[in-house]
Structures are given as structure tokens and as C-alpha cells.
Amino acid sequence: MVTDVNQARLDRAASIYTAEFAASRGIDLRYVNTGKMEDPVKELKSISGDQGYDDVFVFAPVRPVVEQGDAILAFDGCLNFFAGPGDPNFSAMLNFYNVHYAYTHIVGTSGGNNDDMKEAIEIMSGGLDPAGLVTHIGGLDAVPDTTNRLPEIPGGKKLIYTHIDLPLTPIDDFEKLGKENELFRELAKICKRHNGLWSVEAESFLLNYFDHK
């Protein structure tokens, strides 16, 4: 179950990770706009057969979202607060009755260690495609400014190629930049063939371009 209140984001996610593909792997994947629900907690729990959910991941540091995530936990359910808040006083109400009697619990994810990286690579080699996470590419020269302004830059992961010089560039801007730049013109064509996503083909073209520049 993937929830959001922004239909455009849900539609984009659904076009990248389709329900049909998930079904072929035995997964019932649904995209739900909770902004259209009168009672999101009640309706989300009803989808689960009123059992709640074993794992709930919260990707936005928004109090109502955290509280909603807590409210839909199943017995022994885990709320994973993945989103790192910028406000040191950020807080939300949690049901501690359920902590005691329903064994609900909370974890906070702030990054991975080397073992996590190895596991991620192993999972990717088994077919998990992380391309949907990448929204920008850049070279080593883009790192200082990107690091300093990261909270202000929208989108997902910023993929940095440390052996080239390239401004941090959104994939969505390739086509516009390609009107005057050969590199981005070709990258735009490649990404379009891959549903607007970064890909091995795009990376190979990029690296070959700089190798022969």
C-alpha cells in the first residue's frame, strides 16, 4: 500500500512501479490517495481486513501522517519513521496503550551501514530496480553546492559521478537543456525510452561522452 495526498505523485509512482508488475511477483500493490478519504484511518484499516499493517513507513515529517501511521498498525506492528525532520522539537501523539498491550513499536532510520549496502546490492542483483529513486545527476564539482542546499532541492536521489565535471541537473530538465546541448539532447532521448528514468544505457552514454570529450 502506497499512500499520498498528491495524485500526481501517486500516478507517477504507479507508472514506474506498476500494480501489474507487482502482481506478477505475488504482491497486491495499491496506490491510495488518503486526501480523498473522509476517515483515512478507518478506510485504510478496512483495506487490511481491519487487522492493520505489520509495517508502516512514514516518509514525511508531518505530525498527522505520523499519527495516522501509528493508528493503522497491527498487533506487534512497527512504525518506521524514515523521514528525518529538520525541526529538533518535532513531535507527534502516539498510542502508548497499544505500545504496552498490542506490542506496537517504533524505529527511526537515519542511514545505512556497509552491511546494508551489501544487502541492497544483493537485492538489486535479484531484480530490484532503483532507477525510480534517481531524479538528478551531476559531477564531483556539483557536490559542495548540492550538499549545502540539499534541503532546498526537490526530488529524490542525486547521483554523483566523481570523475566528471557536470552541474547537478534534474532528469526532467534534459529535454529543455537538449535544445542547445548535445549531451542532454541524447540523454533526454535515452531516458524517454526508459519511462523518464535514469538507466544503464544513459549512464554508459554519459561516461562514454566524457571519455571522448
Results as ranks from 00 to 15, higher is better:
Met1Thr: 14
Val2Leu: 02
Asp4Gly: 02
Ala8Gly: 11
Arg9Asn: 08
Asp11Met: 00
Ala13Gly: 10
Ser15Phe: 03
Tyr17Trp: 08
Asp28Lys: 05
Asp28Ile: 05
Leu29Met: 08
Met37Asn: 08
Asp39Arg: 06
Glu43Cys: 04
Lys45Gln: 14
Ser48Thr: 14
Gly52His: 08
Asp54Asn: 07
Asp54Cys: 06
Asp55Pro: 06
Phe57Gln: 07
Pro61Ser: 14
Pro61Met: 11
Cys78Trp: 14
Phe90Gln: 11
Phe90Ile: 15
Phe90Ala: 14
Leu94Thr: 12
Leu94Glu: 09
Asn95Lys: 13
Asn95Tyr: 09
Phe96Gln: 09
Phe96Cys: 12
Ala102Cys: 14
Gly108Phe: 07
Gly108Glu: 03
Thr109Pro: 06
Ala120Ile: 12
Glu122His: 11
Ala131Thr: 04
Gly132Glu: 07
Gly132Arg: 05
Gly132Trp: 06
Val134Ile: 08
Thr135Gln: 02
Asp141Arg: 04
Ala142Lys: 03
Pro144His: 05
Thr147Phe: 10
Ile153His: 03
Ile153Thr: 05
Pro154Val: 06
Asp165His: 10
Pro170Cys: 06
Leu177Gln: 08
Lys179Met: 15
Glu180Trp: 01
Arg185Phe: 04
Leu187Met: 00
Lys189Asn: 11
Cys191Thr: 02
Arg193Tyr: 04
His194Leu: 09
Asn195Gln: 12
Trp198Gly: 05
Ser199Thr: 06
Ala202Gly: 07
Phe205Gly: 04
Phe210Pro: 07
His212Trp: 01
Lys213Trp: 07
